[in-house]
Amino acid sequence: MTHTPHLFGRRSFTATLGLGSLALAAPRVARAQTREIVIGGAASHKPWFETHVQSAFERKYNCRLTFEGTRSLVNLEKMQKNKDRPYVSVVQMDDPVMILAVREGLLEPITAARAPNLARLKPGTVHMDGMWANYLQPWQGIAFNTNVLRTAPQSWTEMFEARFKSRIIVPSLQNTEGLPNLFMMAHLVTGKPMAEAYKDIDAAFAGLRRLKPNLLTAYSQMPQAFSLMEQGEAHMIIGALSSFGMQRRLDGAPVGMVAPREGIFPVPSGIAVVKGGPNQDLAFAYVNELLGAEIQNRIAPPTFALPTNLDAQTPPGMPSGVTVHPIDWAFVAENRTAWVQRWDREMAL
C-alpha cells in the first residue's frame, strides 16, 4: 500500500504556514534594517522632492525617506497631536506657521555643528536663532497677461492707474502671499524705505483702499486667479508667486512674470527639525542637504525660486540685481489676525 501525501495534511500545512509567515515578515525585517524618516511638507513639493532629492539622499545615507504632502497648518497639527511621540522628523512649512511651532516648543534648533551648510546661507534666511531656515526663495512680483499688456509693468505703482479699473487681482490677506502687498503699499504710500515703512499699517490700508476701484477680486485660490488673468478678465495679479506664474508661462499660457523696480518679496519656504522626532541625525543630515548648494542648484530651477545658499547659482530667467525685501514674520504673527479683521471691514464690497 502506497502512502499518498495529503495536500492539506498537518505537516504540509505547518510548512506552508511557516513559509508564508517568513514571506510576510521578510519585508518588515528588511525595513527594520533600513532607517527611515518622515518629512512633512507641502503637497506641491512632492514632484521635486521625488525627482531631485529622495533617491540621492536615500543612496547617500542608506535610509528611506517618506514624504507626507499637505498644508503647513496640517503639518503643525500633526506635530501638536503627536508632541509626546513625534513620528515626523523634518517639516517644510511656511514661515508664519514655523513661528507657531516655535511658540509651542515643537522644533529643535538647527546649529552649524549639526548642519554645516547653515553657515553658508544668505543673510535673513535663518530665523529665531536657527529654529528654522529657508532652503529656497520663490519670489513674489507682478504677473500679467501678455496678450493684453504688450510691455511688462515696471513699477508696483502701475496698479493704481485708471486703465486697470476692475482688472487687478490681489491675494487675500488670509493667504500668506497676501501679506507682502501690505508692506509694499506702506512703502508706496509713505515714500519711505521699506525697512522704515513696513510697520506703518495705516498707510498700507490707505493704499489698499485706493486700489479698490481697480480690484476685480482678492483670491483665496491661486489657480482661479491665474485662470481669470489668462482668460483676459483680469490684467495683472499683484503679489503673484513666481513658482506658479513661471510654470504657467512654461506651459504656454499668456503669462508674464516681472520683478518691478521697487523690489520683490521672498516666499517663505522654511525647513526645521521636529523636536524629539525619530532619527535626529538623519533629520539634520536632510536639512543640511537642502541647505547645501548641490541640492539647491537642482531644485531652484524647477521651482522657479532663488537659492538661499551663497554658493548656489541663480537659475536663468530669475531676477538678478533686484532688491529682495525680507519679511518680519514675528511682526506678521503678532498682528495678522487684526489685519485680517481690518481687511474684512475696509476692503468689503
Binding site: 487675500s172 488670509q174 477680486t217 482678492a218 483670491y219 483665496s220 474684512d344 476692503m347 468689503a348 464690497l349
Partner: peptide
C-alpha cells in the same frame, strides 16, 4: 464673489481652516 464678501459660512470656514 471672493474674499471681500463674507457670509457666516465663509467666516466659519476661514476661522477653523485658516485663522
Amino acid at each position: 464673489i471672493g474674499d471681500r464678501f463674507q457670509t457666516l459660512a465663509t467666516l466659519t470656514g476661514r476661522s477653523f481652516l485658516l485663522m
